[in-house]
Design a protein around this nucleic acid. Sequence first.
DNA 1: GTCTATAATAGGATAGAC
DNA 2: GTCTATCCTATTATAGAC
Lengths: 195, 195
Amino acid sequence: MARPARIPCEEVLRSMKTVFRENGYDGASMADLAAKTGLAKAALYHHFPGGKEDMAAAVLDEISGWMKEHVLGPLSVPGVPREKLRRLSEALNEFYDGGQSSCLIGAFSIGEAMTLFQGRLGAAVRGLMAAIAKVLIEAEIPERVALSRAEDAVIRIQGALVVARALRDTRPFTRLLRRLPDDLLSALPDAVSDR
Amino acid sequence: MARPARIPCEEVLRSMKTVFRENGYDGASMADLAAKTGLAKAALYHHFPGGKEDMAAAVLDEISGWMKEHVLGPLSVPGVPREKLRRLSEALNEFYDGGQSSCLIGAFSIGEAMTLFQGRLGAAVRGLMAAIAKVLIEAEIPERVALSRAEDAVIRIQGALVVARALRDTRPFTRLLRRLPDDLLSALPDAVSDR
DNA sequence: GTCTATAATAGGATAGAC
DNA sequence: GTCTATCCTATTATAGAC
């Protein structure tokens, strides 16, 4: 056995994730992180010697793991496409807290964080797009259309989160998630759209 | 005549807009703003006594004016809907520099800026949505569908900017703009989508 | 591993000369 | 209107005791 699963560490990561989601990278201060985690700043540096950058990286990795387990994994497993997409909407609704929590892909794609984490951000977007496209291809949708729709889905998810926050109204996001499975699997028009 | 149009001020606003778009609100420092505008910090405070908050507000107001003139105005004027939507795409392409520049609605919807400017952000989103919906209604699209599609368009615009930055590839954004007019005016399916 | 205390620096803001 | 110089606070980061 490699390591005794450190339970408190998960709690610390959860708190840090909240701080970064609410404040972005530049807006999150060590004081914020210390307050939210309940640890002193020095204790945080003990666990994350690289400071804020290390903490943000750890949060992104933790999210990546959660996504692989709860989102990408279930999409890759054999199953009814529509049902899998319905569960995707549910998982996203949970992850983004019904549209109330921001996405770090958006929050970290400006300022210093953009240069620091561009690799992780791009990988996250590409991973989700690929997983959705795979389900659509499984549903007999031509690859080209599947890739286009998958990209559009990720675009809409990100955009709905922005719009929901700007309007202080989560309904644009929840509406989107409700329509997402049908939209992704809808019949092909006439090759007019989906170019 | 009220005032001799101050030309240099526009230049200063342009520079500040760039700084906020690249760094967000928390990530933009007075030093950044001074360097980019070529003015000393004290000179900036002379024009914007409220400091960074004043500067960001001025930038948002300037953008709001540009949008009204180059985006919302042309949409409200009599004309062929498809043609007006095509010009909308062109204006957005110009404003967001082909997808390379971020949108302050997204950048300012986290952290301190979110609470400071929530009114302006919501108004900007609602204004664009309403202008697009009006064109669709003009094109004989039922109001309910028009409102839904207009919301979706704004969502996609915001999302495509996020995705383009995360991927460091502007094509998702340019592709979106190209399809936007057709997508907005496409024939109604079966009342399956657009609920 | 966690704390208090503190160093070092960056950031926001102002004073006062020109 | 613009500058240099300065103040004060917040922020990052570390030292050293427990």
